[in-house]
Design a protein around this nucleic acid. Structure first.
Lengths: 70, 70
DNA sequence: TAAAAAAGTAATATATACTTGACAAATAGA
DNA sequence: TCTATTTGTCAAGTATATATTACTTTTTTA
């Protein structure tokens, strides 16, 4: 897994801290941090919650062209 | 969680069985079945693998308008 | 209408997402 | 430069996605 810079950028564009986004998405700060760093493979429901919090779609933030593994 | 009829339809459009899709996505038939029935909250990587297998995007298959819970 | 294939279901086991709490490192603001 | 905020990290615990095996029910097809 690689870093999710799209998410980091979308969060920055909304001027939200990791804590802010975590609260909005209903998870902990550590979970958001791990997702941005590419250490977790989040559930799609969490992805949707994150997308809604930062005003983006799944394709915007989680559709990378090169990721084949499960 | 509710049924994923978009996925079921996309699979049917490709004339794939749950087993076919499972093989293409690298998971078991039961996992695909559970996802279509809305019993699992799949990882985003698995969602991407499924999307690629049926020629759809994340927004096509996993972006429901009404899903607020994590 | 019978057999075959596909889909649904269930139990047990394992891997990992996610939590909690705590602390260190980095960044930003006074 | 000092302080507060934000981010990164780690260890231990809980919840759940996914695997495996096996069986039943439904659908397809010959």
């Amino acid at each position: 897994m690689s870093k999710n810079l799209n998410l980091k950028a979308a969060r920055a564009a909304k001027d939200m801290t990791q804590k802010d986004l975590a609260d909005a998405a209903g998870v902990t700060r550590q979970t958001i941090n791990a997702i941005e760093l590419g250490e977790y493979n989040p559930s799609v429901k969490l992805c949707v919650a994150i997308c809604r919090a930062v005003g983006k779609t799944l394709n915007d933030l989680f559709w990378e062209e090169n990721s084949n593994e499960k």
